[in-house]
C-alpha cells in the first residue's frame, strides 16, 4: 500500500474546511449554509483520521466518531429550526433573520 503523506491529507482537509467556511459566508439559502457546515465538520474528520494514521493511534478515529455525532445533532436541531423559519416566513433566505441589530 502506498502511504499518502500526511501533509497531503492535511492540505486537503484545510482546503475542504476553507470551502465549507466560504460556503457559510456566501450562501443565502439556509439549507446550503447547514450543508457547508457539514463540509467543515468532514474536513475536521479527515484531519483527525489522517493524524491518527500518522501516529498509528485509534484516537483519531474515535474523535471522528464524536465529530459525526456532533454533525448529526447539529443538523437535527438546524433542520427543526429551518422548518420553523419556513413555516413562519415561507422562505429559506437567511436575510429574513436579520431583524436584531445595533
Amino acid at each position: 500500500m502506498i502511504a499518502i503523506p500526511v501533509e497531503h491529507c492535511l492540505l486537503l482537509s484545510v482546503m475542504l474546511f476553507c470551502l465549507g467556511l466560504l460556503g457559510v459566508l456566501v450562501r443565502r439559502n439556509i439549507i446550503f449554509v447547514l450543508m457547508s457546515m457539514e463540509i467543515m465538520l468532514n474536513a475536521i474528520g479527515l484531519a483527525f483520521v489522517s493524524g491518527g494514521a500518522r501516529w498509528g493511534q485509534a484516537d483519531g478515529q474515535v474523535m471522528f466518531l464524536l465529530v459525526i455525532t456532533l454533525a448529526a445533532a447539529e443538523v437535527a436541531i438546524g433542520l427543526a429550526l429551518v422548518l420553523q423559519l419556513y413555516q413562519r416566513y415561507r422562505t429559506l433566505d437567511i436575510e429574513t433573520i436579520s431583524k436584531m441589530k445595533g
Partner: peptide
C-alpha cells in the same frame, strides 16, 4: 461600532473568519 452590528449572520461569520 454600532454600525458593525448589522444583524446579518453572514457578516458575523465574516468577522469570525
Amino acid at each position: 461600532f454600532g454600525l458593525t452590528q448589522t444583524g446579518r449572520m453572514q457578516w458575523y461569520v465574516g468577522s469570525i473568519a
